Simulated scan of single mutants.
Amino acid sequence: MTVRVAVAGASGYAGGELLRLLASHPGVEIGAVTAHSSAGRPLGSVQPHLPELADRPLLDTSAAILRGHDVVFLALPHGQSAALAGELDPGALVVDCGADFRLRSSAAWERFYGSAHAGTWPYGLPELPGAREELRGATRIAVPGCYPTAITLALFPAYAAGLVEPEAVITAATGTPGAGRSVKPRFLGSEVMGSMSPYGVGGGHRHTPELVQNLSRVAGEHVTVSFTPTLAPMPRGILATCSARLRPGVPAAEDAVRAVYADAFAEEPFVRLLPAGRWPATGAVLGSNTAQVQLAVDADARRLIGVSAVDNLTKGTAGGAVQSMNIALGLPERLGLPTNGVAP
């Protein structure tokens, strides 16, 4: 089975990562690659790490060009996917890497994004309980945000098992590609190198309602989230440190909690629960679709701490999108996706 795939937003970081993975996918033929301001240029002028596709012309991003493909990936800025998706073939698989269709709550969307809610599509985090069933045969998929991918994997087993109270405190560090490729002074190398800084503090980050949605879904009750993101001087990766208080009556026993996590991830091809004493590192997952997870129990504070590391462009975006495509089309879930990282 070979499917013809288009990538809209191919000049950006997420689009380039999609093409890197799709170029090695044995079930894919790459069709149109599109952009906005870079339209008319060869792909190699903006994605020089893709020599096999370097001579492909970047076409205008329009429904007319994207129609006729079996799969269309939308790697566009938030708020730009909805109108375009409505003009695409109803029978094609459309995978949105932006935020337009992630949230179930219209009120949450309007509060954090300031526009009308376009709707909700099946959620492309296969490891989340019940998600694979929704993805099989789907023709529309919303890929999670990169922070919610890392954080949900670090915490959901504890919430699914009823181990922790419905409040979570999260600090996560990310590399600069999460802000996109457009030039912004605060993301210049001279501003970022040798410095870390917080942003979106006090519940202002747009991924907060997505975190609440995911954790509440598995907990079966509303979970409040205090999320502080930080910008780190690295080109890729997310390291998330997440904690929640153990429920009364739950023993502060790390072995018991580890058994819950081991059971949750036992059949997951892209989540690795590390051996006791080893901690996730962004460098270990560079370029891979693997998430590393570790946990600890602070017995004195009666808090569970879950730590995860992902490559925000691979497992956090493009890899998760390809993984979800594989499931939707009935292909082997691992197809075209690297589990090994790149070092040093």
Rank of each mutant, 00 (worst) to 15 (best):
H78W: 01
P280R: 15
A99D: 13
A64H: 13
R206D: 02
L59C: 07
V285K: 08
E52R: 08
P233N: 05
L74Y: 04
A154T: 06
G119F: 07
R132M: 08
V271F: 14
Q80R: 11
G137K: 14
R258D: 10
N214Q: 12
T208Y: 01
G204L: 15
E134S: 05
H78C: 03
R56I: 05
S288P: 01
D263T: 15
G203A: 15
R217L: 15
A219I: 02
G319P: 00
G31F: 12
D300Q: 15
S115G: 15
M234H: 03
P344Y: 12
R258N: 10
L155S: 04
A276K: 14
P177N: 06
A99K: 09
G202V: 12
A296F: 04
G202Q: 13
C146V: 10
E165V: 00
Q323N: 12
A14N: 05
S195C: 13
L88D: 05
H25W: 13
S11T: 13
T228E: 02
D60C: 05
A116M: 06
P57E: 01
Q292K: 13
L128C: 11
Q80E: 11
L295W: 07
G237C: 02
V164E: 07
G16E: 04
A172I: 09
A138N: 01
T228R: 14
A63E: 12
P344M: 11
A321S: 04
R67V: 02
I238S: 02
L50M: 11
A116N: 03
G180D: 13
P57S: 10
H49S: 14
K184E: 03
L337K: 04
L128F: 05
G204Y: 13
T208V: 15
R104V: 01
P42Y: 06
G249C: 07
A83W: 01
P185C: 04
A35R: 12
P251G: 06
G194Q: 04
A179C: 07
G203P: 10
S105A: 05
T224W: 12
E29W: 01
V46L: 06
T228W: 05
G220V: 05
P57T: 07
V183E: 09
E267L: 14
T282M: 14
V223A: 08
L125D: 07
Q213L: 05
A318C: 09
P280Y: 15
R20T: 02
G178E: 11
G277T: 12
D60N: 14
D263S: 15
P42C: 09
D100H: 13
R67H: 09
A252Y: 00
A160I: 01
L21M: 08
A299E: 15
G320C: 08
G16W: 10
R140D: 06
I327D: 08
D255K: 00
A256P: 00
L246A: 08
